[in-house]
């Protein structure tokens, strides 16, 4: 996984609530068996509308998505995270996230930042007023900064540490293989197997 410490880039305001993962990447894009090329499918249906915010040239190259509440609801497709990252996003700021999307993001090193709805709106307005606004997402300090503003965000210590170090969960779990084996030996004998 890509480590995340601090990132500074321009933002793009996505003023919509309940952006489900079917919108982030429609199902027809999920047929690929590779892990690359998903940026083309990002918001595929919405991008056909010239007025869609990602089509506005002033936001070209932005790397912090500032979205409405309940971002990433619905389907568990991790392709949504891959599409956002491959398009160039390093962090998504929203007031609320779908649980699975948020989990998937932290496995891949795309930082989901939860800020109060008013703060998200203030950040969106600041970006709309000046699209050149630099937004810093500082995981070490648990803080988002832009202009003269700063807003703290919460993230549990363990996930933060994993992201800062770019650690792979499987490797961490395999350190506890003995515990897994002990547990396995104590499982009830009636539990089903698929064979």
């Amino acid at each position: 996984m890509e480590a995340f410490t601090t990132h500074t880039g321009r933002g793009v305001p996505l003023r919509r609530s309940n952006v489900d993962t079917d919108q982030i990447i429609p199902a027809v894009w999920l047929k690929q068996v590779s892990r690359t090329g998903f940026e083309k499918g990002l918001f595929a249906a919405w991008r056909e509308d010239p007025a869609f915010v990602l089509n506005d040239p002033v936001y070209e190259g932005a790397s912090v998505l500032v979205a409405g509440p309940d971002f990433g609801t619905g389907s568990s497709r991790e392709h949504a995270v891959w599409a956002l990252q491959q398009y160039g996003f390093r962090a998504v700021v929203a007031a609320r996230f779908g649980d699975i999307f948020r989990n998937n993001s932290t496995k891949m090193g795309l930082l989901p930042v939860v800020l109060p709805a008013e703060t998200v709106e203030a950040l969106q307005s600041a970006i709309e007023a000046d699209p050149a606004t630099e937004v810093t997402v500082d995981l070490s300090a648990r803080q988002v900064r832009w202009g003269a503003e700063a807003a703290g965000f919460e993230i549990d210590d363990y996930t933060r540490w994993r992201l800062l170090e770019g650690l792979d969960d499987i490797g961490l779990t395999l350190r506890h293989a003995d515990d897994v084996e002990t547990y396995e030996n104590g499982r009830q004998s009636w539990l089903p197997t698929t064979v």
């Binding site: 568990s76 497709r77 991790e78 392709h79 995270v81 649980d99 699975i100 989990n103 998937n104 496995k107 891949m108 549990d156 969960d169 499987i170 961490l172 779990t173 395999l174 293989a177 897994v180 396995e184």
Partner: peptide, 22 residues
């Protein structure tokens, strides 16, 4: 519960998942 592809790989490799209790 539903999981993403990174977690699918984790379960395949370890038959476990790290998770906070909701």
């Amino acid at each position: 519960f539903g999981i993403g592809t990174s977690e699918v790989e984790h379960v395949l490799a370890t038959q476990t998942l790290p998770a906070y209790r909701p």
